[in-house]
Design a binder for these strands. Structure first.
Lengths: 234, 234
DNA sequence: CCAAAAGTGTTATCGCTACACCCATGA
DNA sequence: TCATGGGTGTAGCGATAACACTTTTGG
C-alpha cells in the first residue's frame, strides 16, 4: 500500500471530541456520597454535573482521568477505574462528544476541602442527588451498579475508608453499598476468617464508650492469598 | 457565558480519531476460538489483527461495533459488549487513535463462512493465536479475562452454542472457558436445578451411539427467575 | 456383544444463616 | 449504675464435592 493510501485511510476518518467524566464516591459515617460540581460553562452553566474534561492530544484516557481527579480533589493515588463510553449523537447539545466515564473511590478525610470549595463542588448523599446534566444521571446509576458488583468480589471497599478503621465502620460501608443490613457476627466472622486485616492496638472511641478496635487492610497479605487461589467475597 | 466563550470551550479541545475493535469469540466442539483478520492497510499490512473500524461522525460507539460485526460475520443479533478503551499515545504508529475494544460471542454455525473468506479471516484456537499487531494481544487477553468473570455469573455461554445443544456440549464449553475439568454429575445437577433449560424430545447422535438429549436455553424463564432474586452461577 | 458416550444418587463436608447474651466504659 | 455500642459461639440447614455403576445402541 502506498503512503498516499495510508494517509487517506487515517485522514479519511473523522476526528471526534473525546472527554472523560468522573463519578467520585466517598463514604461518610454511614452514607455513600458523590462529589458533584456546579458547571461553569454553557450550555447548562450553573447546573450540577460530574467533573470531566476533554482528553488532550498529549495524554491517554487514564492520564486524563487522573489529571481531572487530582485537579478536583488534590489526590493522586486514588482507586480509579474506567466504566464505559457514552456516545449518543445527541448526548451533548454543545457538540458531538464521546465521553469515557470513570469511577473513583476516595477517602473523604484525605481530600482537600479547599479544592472542593474552589470548584464549587459539594458532596451529595447518593440517595439524594440533584438533577444532573446530560447523561450524567445514567452514568451515576451505572457506576453504583458496577461498584456493587465489584465490591462483592474484590476488596475495594477499603479505598473508601481511612487507613485505620473499625469493623463496625466497615460493616456500615458494605451495608451502604448493598443497601441491606448484615448480621454483625457473621460479617466479622467472614471478614476476619480471610486474614487480610491487621488488628491494631488502638481503639476508636468516637462512637462508643467501650471503643472499637482499629484495623488496617493488609494489601500484601491479600495479594499473597489471592495468588494461592483464595477469593474474596462479601 | 457568551456564545463566543462556549465556542472556544468546545473548539479549544482537540479532536481525536476514535476506533472500535472486536474480539470475536466462537466455540467449536471443545475449543474456544477467535476470528482474526489479515490486515489490508499499512502499517502492518498482511499481519493478523482484530477487526475494527473508525467511529464515524454519524454513529455511536455501539453502532460502530455492530456495523463492523455485521460486515465481518453477516450477523446482526449477537452478544456484544464494550470492554474498555486503549489510548496509549504510541499504540498505533499510523496515527494517534483511541480504540474502544468490544467482545462478541457468536455461534460458529450461524455466521457466514463466505464473509470470512472475503475478509481473509480465519478462526484460531485461543491457545494458538498468531502474533497480533498493535496492542491487540493485550486486548484479547483482557477479553478472555472478562469473559471468564462474566460467564460465571451470567448465562452468556449459550451465546456460543447453537440454539439446541446437549449437556455434554455445554459442559465442554464451560470447561474451555474456565480451563478446568468439571464433574459431569455435579454440572448437570446444578444447571438443571436452575430450571432455565428446556429439554427437547430430540437427541443429537453425532457424538455417541446412545445420543444425548438436546436442550434449549429459556430466556424468558431465566429473566423471570432473575427478577425473583435467583442468581445464576456456574 | 462390545465399545463409547450418556445418564443417574448418595454421602461427607463445609460454609452460611439465624439467633441472644456479656463486656467495657464515660457520664 | 446505667445506657450505649462492641464483642463473641453454636446449632441447623443447604449447597458443594467426591465418587462408580448402569443404559443405550450402532457397528
Amino acid at each position: 500500500m502506498s503512503s498516499a493510501t495510508l494517509k487517506k485511510y487515517y485522514e479519511g476518518a473523522e476526528k471526534i471530541l473525546v472527554a472523560i467524566d468522573c463519578i467520585i464516591f466517598g463514604f461518610d459515617k454511614e452514607t455513600l456520597k458523590l462529589l458533584l460540581f456546579k458547571r461553569k460553562i454553557a450550555p447548562f452553566a450553573g447546573e450540577w454535573s460530574l467533573i470531566g474534561s476533554f482528553v488532550q492530544s498529549g495524554e491517554s484516557v487514564p492520564e486524563a482521568a487522573q489529571r481531572v481527579l487530582e485537579e478536583s480533589t488534590g489526590l493522586n493515588n486514588v482507586y480509579l477505574e474506567e466504566m464505559g463510553s457514552y456516545s449518543d449523537l445527541q448526548r451533548d447539545p454543545g457538540s458531538r462528544v464521546i465521553s469515557i466515564a470513570h469511577y473513583a473511590l476516595i477517602r473523604l478525610d484525605e481530600h482537600k476541602q479547599q479544592l472542593v470549595e474552589t470548584h464549587q463542588a459539594r458532596w451529595f448523599p447518593y440517595d439524594d442527588l440533584p438533577d444532573l446534566i446530560l447523561d450524567h444521571q445514567e452514568m451515576t446509576q451505572n457506576a453504583l451498579a458496577k461498584l456493587r458488583r465489584k465490591a462483592r468480589y474484590q476488596p475495594i471497599g477499603f479505598e473508601l475508608l481511612p487507613e485505620k478503621f473499625t469493623l463496625p465502620q466497615l460493616q456500615l460501608l458494605y451495608q451502604a453499598i448493598y443497601q441491606k443490613k448484615l448480621d454483625r457476627r457473621n460479617f466479622r466472622k467472614k471478614i476476619l476468617s480471610m486474614k487480610i486485616l491487621e488488628k491494631l492496638d488502638e481503639k476508636d472511641k468516637t462512637n462508643s464508650r467501650k471503643g472499637a478496635f482499629l484495623y488496617r487492610f493488609d494489601e500484601k497479605k491479600y495479594q499473597e492469598l489471592e495468588r494461592k487461589g483464595m477469593n474474596f467475597e462479601l
